[in-house]
Amino acid sequence: MTRHARAIRALLAGTALLATGFSATAAVAQSKIAVITPYLSQPGTQFYVEAFEAAAEGKDWDVNVIDTAGDVAAVISRIEDMVTQNVDAIVINVDPTQVTAGLQSAKDAGIPVIGMDAGADPLLVTNITSNGYAMAAETATYVADRIDGAGNVVMFVFEAFPPVQVRGVVADAVFGNFPDITILDHVTPDVSDGGIADSRAKMEAILAANPEPGSVKAVWAAWDQPALGALQAIEAAGRGGEGIVITGIDANPQAREAIAAGGNFEASVAQDFKGIGATAADVVARVLAAEEIKQGSIYVPTQLITASNAAE
């Protein structure tokens, strides 16, 4: 019989094991907010979520962060569970078109869903993100200003990816407003290896075709990788001293390092991930206070990164 008892005890231990998970959930809070993402292990997402939690601290919220470890279908499942649980608001960081099933069930239940750099969608109250148009305008005007509104500019663009495509459109508009700026080429690099190597190869070809010093005044890149590739090409060709101005967008660590070094790569734009998280918390508070949010997208300002602040 003792053997049986032991086996039963082992079974009961399972229930005890379950119970250990719940100690923290007893606290009663006024508003239940669920933050659901498949991407918590990615640095950008971590910044949003941490900033969201920090901003939520002063408020009377019970914030439940759910990571589905890359599984997008599980995001739908967890949204459904949160709808069942009748939470007060849901914040997502995932492409809304992929979780429409979950968003629909939230809408049917009258639960507001806010996007945290998710993408605009009619089923979201609003989406908090960086302004891609403004980021491109920031670097394009920097370039135009640095070359005194005159000279040949090489543009690195990428039409296939919508968020990057808009950057190219805006830069074209800015350069088009300067009659003495000529766009030498719109280059679309092959990004299958990350984009740096092919951008370098394409830039080397352009430099070879334009050997006169001053025949290329600037390189405007829609993101950082082509800017880094162009920088390598210019340095390898021994033309680093011509004052060719390079700009990128995103301010990734490698780009910041290059900008801080004070060479041709002069500027990039950083998204304010923490600001996106904090703004999302602010928007949730406004939605809970029954304020109507009119914009489908709420933009968080970005920051121009130059040699003076690249190391920050």
């Binding site: 399972g14 094991l17 990571d67």
Partner: peptide, 21 residues
């Protein structure tokens, strides 16, 4: 998955529990 999510149990704790069970 469903019940622990509704109880707001941390998603990582959930994985440990599932393996344990």
């Amino acid at each position: 998955d469903n019940g622990l999510t509704q109880l707001s149990v941390d998603s990582y704790v959930r994985q440990i529990l599932v393996g344990g069970i």
